[in-house]
Write a protein that binds this DNA or RNA. Structure first.
Lengths: 217, 217
DNA sequence: AACGTGTCAACTGTCGACAGTTGGCAGATT
DNA sequence: AATCTGCCAACTGTCGACAGTTGACACGTT
């Protein structure tokens, strides 16, 4: 019973996944260069597919290309963080408004479930895992039913993860985030688009501020 | 006196420019496939750089890739247009709000100049050129000073141009657009971010509706 | 006549090798 | 000793050729 498709994904596609993981986890540290021949040998593929993978990640903002020099993992400046969060805010506020208008009851249950699980984890003494934060925003995006906005948010969140890779969270911030999420769900439950957008704006503003302080500490 | 850089742009970069032009002008019609060997010969380059160019344009949304089948110029469905304009609205409303808050007097003068030129052209009996519409939105984006938002808007506008390539404008719509632009400039002049965002939202809603009617005519 | 099967050409995916450019190092000069 | 010049190794950019897959056509079967 071999898989129906002999190659589930092209070598370039596989290389994208592997490289993305290595960049996001910080295995390839920010500021470092990606050597084409070295990484190609390491992955056991030729330079062609690897180059395509590098270009793809560059288009996602996870690498920056310098002609005749190669690809670098970008390191964030405070200005970058601010500008990136302006983009994220524009996208996710719109998503929150659309979610408030278009959500189904199933969407609402899913959102409430994610919030409840976050609370449970937190009360059990465990930290609010970033995984659940991502899950919340993803669920909200599904409820918004705006595929292009969702796609762009996904890309922006990836870049945020990249900036965030070496930061630790502090409990007060986690608590505030969970409160924001709860309030957001209430606004969406009420179908109050304006409030949903406003709460999302305040939430992201807080997250951005926290990242900026962590960045400079 | 040869140029300082022997190659101003890599072959892949040049191929991107040529292909983008051909796609946006409809020289390569929507729905058609891009044959790698054929286009490579046509451009006088190898398949490697051309492949990179194709992948780049795909990341911009100007081509869609199908594994083992090739690259196609996407043809728009009404759902695509709506979803794309939801993205554009989220981005440009935020840009309009930022522009209202951050604009300098120089920015304001530039915006007013573009509007004035549009009026002049229109009164002279000439149609409102799409060039000036793009110039207006670009000037507003510069005034917003949010580089990531600006970059995304640029990509979205490109896709709108692609959808728009075979559509003609009608004078009533042109007139309404110029009125919207004027009202937008007034809001930005007043520093009224909320109004600027609202006007932009209404403007894009109108443009989207016009595109949808033109699409189905 | 409709359907399933085998073959084939065209195209994409991949590879290894060559050419051009960049940044740095060694040596010569002042 | 400091600076400038010329060379060099490493790397990216590019090319031509091979391998694997896809969709379609022709053929045979029911």
């Amino acid at each position: 019973m071999t898989p129906p498709t002999p190659l589930h994904l092209s070598l370039a596609g596989q290389a994208v996944d592997v490289l993305r993981e290595q960049v996001l986890t910080g295995e390839i540290p920010p500021g470092s260069r990606v050597n084409e021949v070295e990484v190609a040998q390491q992955l056991g593929i030729s330079r062609g597919p690897l180059r395509e993978a590098i270009r793809h990640l560059a288009s996602e903002g996870l690498l920056t290309l310098v002609p005749h020099r190669g690809a670098f993992v970008p390191d964030a400046t405070p200005e970058d963080v601010k500008a990136l969060f302006e983009l994220r805010t524009a996208l996710e506020c719109a998503a929150a408004e659309h979610a408030a208008s278009r959500r189904t009851d199933v969407d609402l249950v899913r959102l409430q479930d994610v919030c409840a699980e976050s609370r449970r984890n937190y009360r059990a003494g465990q930290p609010f895992p970033y995984r659940l934060d991502l899950a919340f925003h993803q669920t909200l995006l599904d409820a918004a039913r705006s595929p292009y906005i969702a796609e762009q948010v996904r890309l922006v969140q990836q870049r945020v993860v990249l900036l965030r890779s070496s930061l630790e969270d502090d409990p007060p911030h986690q608590h505030a985030s969970m409160d924001d999420h709860d309030e957001l769900v209430r606004a969406i439950a009420d179908g109050d688009a304006a409030k949903a957008g406003a709460v999302m704006r305040r939430h992201l503003s807080r997250v951005c501020a926290q990242m900026l302080t962590s960045l400079t500490h």
